[in-house]
Design a protein around this nucleic acid. Sequence first.
DNA 1: CTGTTAGCGCGTTCAG
DNA 2: CTGAACGCGCTAACAG
Lengths: 340, 340
Amino acid sequence: MPDQPLPVRPVTLADIAREAGTSASTASRALSGRGYVSDNVRGRLLEIADRLGYVPNASARTLKQRTSRVVGVVVTDLENQFYAGLSAGIEETLRASGYHMVLVSANGSSGEEAAGARTFLALGTPGVILTPATRDAAALLLRHRIPVVEVDRQLAGDPCDAVVVDNARGARDATAHLLQLGHRRIALLVVDTEWTSDAGRLHGYVEAHDAAGVPVDEHLVVRVSPGAQDTEARIGALLDVEAPTAIFAANNQLAEHAWHVLRRRGLQLPGDVSLIGFDDVPWLEMVSPSISTVAQPTVEMGRRAARLLLRRIERPVSERVVEVLQPWLVPRASSGPPPN
Amino acid sequence: MPDQPLPVRPVTLADIAREAGTSASTASRALSGRGYVSDNVRGRLLEIADRLGYVPNASARTLKQRTSRVVGVVVTDLENQFYAGLSAGIEETLRASGYHMVLVSANGSSGEEAAGARTFLALGTPGVILTPATRDAAALLLRHRIPVVEVDRQLAGDPCDAVVVDNARGARDATAHLLQLGHRRIALLVVDTEWTSDAGRLHGYVEAHDAAGVPVDEHLVVRVSPGAQDTEARIGALLDVEAPTAIFAANNQLAEHAWHVLRRRGLQLPGDVSLIGFDDVPWLEMVSPSISTVAQPTVEMGRRAARLLLRRIERPVSERVVEVLQPWLVPRASSGPPPN
DNA sequence: CTGTTAGCGCGTTCAG
DNA sequence: CTGAACGCGCTAACAG
């Protein structure tokens, strides 16, 4: 990087053209690589651009081309490792293709999600990746012909690409695992949303019971409100009242809450109660006893969502794609036979 | 949100003006809130904008005003909880003030950092927040008069705002804690960079030794290369050759590596070896025995960096601010007296 | 192969 | 208080 003197005003195409004795259009063609430019003129232009530290003005380009290279991304909660991993996968893939991302963490507020969507509209983003909280954001974007990819769950009313895991299967495997160990009173901790992720996990839990001919006791299903503060109290009440022999916590946060409650009570895993989570995070393997879970390819989901979006940006009318990745059961020490 | 018919072409100010029978200038004044507009005209304009689902074109605005509302952010590794928390704090604060962030995860590549800086230049970002890897990115941005805030460490040659923790003090406290317990062979695991974070931690480690009159054995200081694959092997070698009675792992990743090596060898904490980390992450408190550490206010650092940047965007020539937050020692079960 | 022209959408003069 | 004119920087269309 040559050492430029303090540029009072950013260098523009016109500056370069003037310096090279060409028109701005020619400079544009040379630097963007589109259109005919003779080799020696292009060479001179490139050299001058480099020497002057030329940086193309993205706004001008976006204004002209009616689309930018900055993708909009909304995740539910950046502080949650799952969403951070998702974001990391998305960013990595976008960047490798010369795109960037503006990231919004909606923190459970559907208003923030909608506001994010309007921002993306304003920015002229070529596409958007959502972990949707409501169907509004996707609807708004799709109405404006902006490609949307949903990750982790599907919510849009209108069809759009998506990357999800087979939540029902993961939950079925986890529940079947516990049933097979002999459990008959398996509690389910699940967030009370209408998302396909939570619904799928609930569904798999029920399916596994049905397949085993074990009736589901609705009292064992604890539906936690999204932002609830009393989650651990509710888990405590569950233990007191329903005496489950196993707990299936349907996401990493619920697993953490359950683990804390169990530990605080001095309950042995799996001697007194078995525990299994959904979504593998490092601590599950590090605590003793280690915690069984259903793992999902978090970062890879992000990468795939980005790849799907890039594909659709290039070919907007290609066929709809929904990638369903398979989660896998990771049995560890926290799941064993029920007491007695 | 009224249900618009498929807008073939995005709604512009001119559309609204035409509909209202005013000029585009008046519409602009009414909707941006700057300049005189009679109340009833403004009301009509606002109503029409709302009805038509008007979304201002950010590129046009940026092109005109020569600055956008999208802040550039570069973090070292979004998959690392520390940087994810930092990003979350930044995003939260920016969004609350009507700004957004384009996030780049440089993944240890200084090239990506520099590329990010050029992208931010192109985007006309009003400011940038960096966890710097080299001084190049900040230099480029500052030369273009773009405010830069450094977080977690300071590296820029030119003066700029920053938010850091007192790394030396945190490391001194951790080391003094171990010395006080009677340890005389305390190993330090630190990343081999020129960052103030790592340098500060190394410095604090030495200071504590000096203060206690205990000589530092250079063989006990393991400098790990940033992206190294052999970190755990090196920790193993350290244990074999130098027989430290305690290990101070100067970041969360190194603590995790050390923990895995110790566990794999069946070493008791703190019976055989004591362990203390830097940066508190949930698993440290969840494993048994729990791991002592030096905690730092991760998310808050992000918030403060964003606040500093917003302040400087508003008043570009205000005095330079470097916020130094205090980390705090969190003694847990993994630090105890040395064996014998 | 190159230059001229024009316009993307907005905000900011400056007259009126 | 309002409108007409202009230009931000870039690129697409066209003419040469």
